[in-house]
Amino acid sequence: MENKQELIHRLKEQIIKQLKLENKRPEDIGDHDPLFVDGLGLDSIDALELIVLLQQEYNIKLRSAEEGQDVFRSIDTMADYILEHSA
């Protein structure tokens, strides 16, 4: 398994591609920036796409919608969750 910094960089690239953030580069997204509203400005449809991304790329299913609020707080929290739940 790659280390956390490598995972964070790959996650940023995947999010830019999956969410069609064509005006963003990985370096534009801070590891601890909020993903929703004031930060990256994602919306509820993007949240669903993030759930699909976790399933598709990492074979991880969220246990509940409430869990998503913590997992998708930032790229850093997403990376922690992936590392914790990867087989």
Partner: peptide, 10 residues
């Protein structure tokens, strides 16, 4: 056919 995309569905 792979994964349904909510962003396309809307």
């Amino acid at each position: 056919k792979a994964y349904p995309s909510p962003a396309l569905f809307v």
